[in-house]
């Protein structure tokens, strides 16, 4: 394929792929920690503690459970897409070169 010239032999190819995958996993863990914090921690486990604070007419824990967590979720996906785009570029994994679906007879 067109991008094989990035890679000289099998060993460096697999090291390259491993480094890319590890960077991806590190990013996933960070983002999923945020995901867990705004929903399960702020919206459920610590909801009563946070409800002692009031923000814009909402009890804070209630706000996270019914509004705030959703806004953060949206942001998380766009942050992920942007960071992965950078990661793809850094590792020469140009996503836009991915092929379309194979012809329908699987050929």
């Amino acid at each position: 394929m067109a991008h094989n010239e990035h890679i000289n032999d099998d060993l460096s190819a697999s090291e390259h792929a491993n480094a890319y995958w590890r960077a991806n996993i590190r990013l996933l863990i960070k983002l999923l920690l945020v995901w867990f914090t705004v929903s399960f921690l702020a919206g459920i486990v610590f909801v009563d503690t946070l409800n002692a604070y009031e923000v814009f007419g909402f009890k804070l824990g209630f706000w996270f459970a019914q509004q705030g967590s959703i806004y953060v979720f949206v942001a998380l996906i766009f942050v992920y897409a942007a960071k992965m785009k950078k990661l793809d570029a850094a590792y020469g994994a140009h996503t836009s070169d991915s092929p379309n679906h194979p012809p329908s007879d699987d050929g």
Partner: peptide, 26 residues
Amino acid sequence: YDGSVYLMGWTGGYVLLALLLAPYLR
């Protein structure tokens, strides 16, 4: 407040979908 399960549950799943499944399945 108990209704929050639907709000968080039915949106938070998209974070899992976007980060863990969709790109690889595509």
